[in-house]
Design a protein around this nucleic acid. Structure first.
Lengths: 336, 336
DNA sequence: TTGAAAGCGCTAACAT
DNA sequence: ATGTTAGCGCTTTCAA
């Protein structure tokens, strides 16, 4: 059996209350007793039982990071930064995948998402319909990491529309005229468009460019192969694009590979830009121009919003916009 | 207040025991009562309190996946597969980074690693000294994911020596003679060599090749930039290698980039092979030849070993070897 | 400043 | 087959 608070109390010949006070740094404990308790803790190798503490306080010290499957865009720089930010605040992070192979979002027993965590951070790149609702139903604080129109919960994201406009204008500035885009959600073909799509279309319009049918490619996910497949289609288009704006770096890397397979040179024949400033993009061939989203800022802010929710459950939803910047690299270098 | 077992019992007009039995799929419950309980659970939106269950059973349902910092080699295919395998067994996964920036492994309060998990899976690519000891001290079952000589705990890994030999011989078979290696631990320069290093040296010897000083490059970690830096050194070597065996795919991608920057063609001037069969390597330019380690097998086995430990805490440590295979791609294509 | 004791929600031993 | 109840280890109210 592990040592308990009682054992420590007995050993130090004080009450459990006093031990608890010492452990939790409460005031009103004499130096003498504090010393004796500390001593006993060390002597017995006492470590508090987290489950009991949780049962009592209602806090688990756990944050769930829900990502579109573990290999999706979220789980790189961003996941790393979330774990770091959470650790600094005394939380641990459980990674929960969702996605096509996870099955339906909510088997009855654990309906509405993972219980037993203090808050949920949901990466919104690719969200199955209903997932947000399911989480909101649980009462667990929910923070969206990424663009989303949902007005009911905290959100931190870059300005998707502006990021897309900036990316597209960067392509225009470097001399491109036939600019396609990859990464819109399949639903957008019929339903409302997301910010990135609007921003892309806005920039195309402003520049007075054509937008041939088929230039806006939707993808179910943001994996390399999704980018690859979409690009193969684009490169077979009767008006082959001379630039591709990708909604994520992963898609863009897939596009680079598709260009190579199609015998196209990047950037000479086609320029490519992504979003996320991933490490991969800094080492790809060619290196990938990207819109930087500052994952550390996103992560820090998301964790802070979650923590703030504990104290003010009914405060109006916060919607934080993260700064972004274009990082020009080889993949969009002008021909000249 | 959330609904409890009592509320459900009252609503269904049965005892808490019966509700508990239904929830946990115990036998000896009549169909009629089972139906009534299920009904009540749904009506009240009951969700079990994990902390209480943990306090009672001693099981948290949590597995820790300890990785060399979140962006390290482990956290791609492997992490994804670990989460999947764990989920299938009813566990959730907390990701715990360790690494240069995490600070010393064990602040006193939580000495010896994360408490409150049922088992720890430790990815061993880059392990700070003392980390394994610290974990062993806690009594929490520990499973090593990756090669390690430590005989005290369960381990699942590919046969590092054979994998390295196979990789090196693949390079020999495709006509290479000056074969360097990147990724040994810094400690190996002085202390005992790890299996991959031994396997590499064995293959070089068998093939009757030279092994000039400086051909075995150590790296502190396995990031892109570690591979990049080591490769820059190699490419400046007075006997420039015509092939590089990398201990991981990430290192190899860094090498590809370094080759491009040095004006070397891959594979014409230098061949590159990695370990891990990462998704990145399937989309890089050129695509990367790699030793496949079957992450799904590794993950599944590691989780199974952890689970088996619960029932047989004192069984002798299991040491499972995962199969591997060379996946030839562009980066080692023979010149002819 | 310190102590005694209740009870968080659940499981399982025991009783029926 | 079902019900009653003790108690897991902790925090915290209340009393001293």
């Amino acid at each position: 059996m592990a040592t308990t608070l009682r054992d420590v109390a007995r050993h130090a010949r004080v009450s459990v209350k006093t031990v608890s006070n010492v452990i939790n740094d409460h005031p009103h404990v004499s130096d003498e007793l504090r010393r004796r308790v500390r001593e006993a803790v060390r002597a017995l190798g006492y470590r508090p039982n987290l489950a009991a503490r949780t049962l009592r306080t209602g806090r688990t010290g756990l944050l769930a990071l829900v990502v579109p499957d573990v290999e999706a865009p979220g789980l790189h720089g961003l996941a790393r930064e979330v774990v770091r930010a959470a650790t600094r605040q005394g939380f641990r992070v459980v990674v929960e995948p969702h996605g096509p192979d996870t099955g339906p979002p909510a088997p009855p027993a654990r309906a509405g998402g993972p219980p037993g965590v203090d808050a949920v951070l949901l990466v919104t790149d690719v969200v199955p319909p209903g997932l947000i609702d399911a989480h909101l139903g649980t009462g667990t604080p929910l923070v969206l990491l990424g663009e989303s129109r949902d007005p009911r919960c905290d959100r931190v994201a870059l300005d998707g529309a502006r990021a897309a406009t900036d990316a597209t204008e960067h392509l225009v500035d470097t001399g491109r005229r036939r600019i396609a885009a990859i990464g819109a959600r399949p639903g957008e073909a019929t339903g409302p468009a997301q910010p990135r799509t609007l921003g892309y279309q806005r920039a195309v319009r402003r520049a007075g460019l054509d937008l041939p049918a088929g230039y806006l490619r939707t993808t179910a996910q943001h994996r390399y192969e999704d980018g690859y497949r979409a690009a193969r289609r684009l490169f077979a288009h009767e008006h082959r694009p001379d630039a591709v704006f990708c909604y994520s770096d992963r898609l863009a890397i897939g596009v680079l590979r598709a260009a190579a397979d199609a015998g196209l040179r990047v950037p000479a024949d086609v320029a490519v830009i992504g979003i996320g400033d991933s490490a991969e993009g800094r080492y790809s061939r060619p290196t990938l121009t990207s819109v930087s989203a500052d994952p550390a800022f996103l992560a820090r802010t998301a964790v802070a919003l979650a923590v703030a929710r504990f104290d003010h459950p009914d405060a109006p939803p916060a919607r934080i916009t993260a700064p972004h910047a274009i990082l020009p690299r080889e993949s969009t270098r002008p021909a000249g």
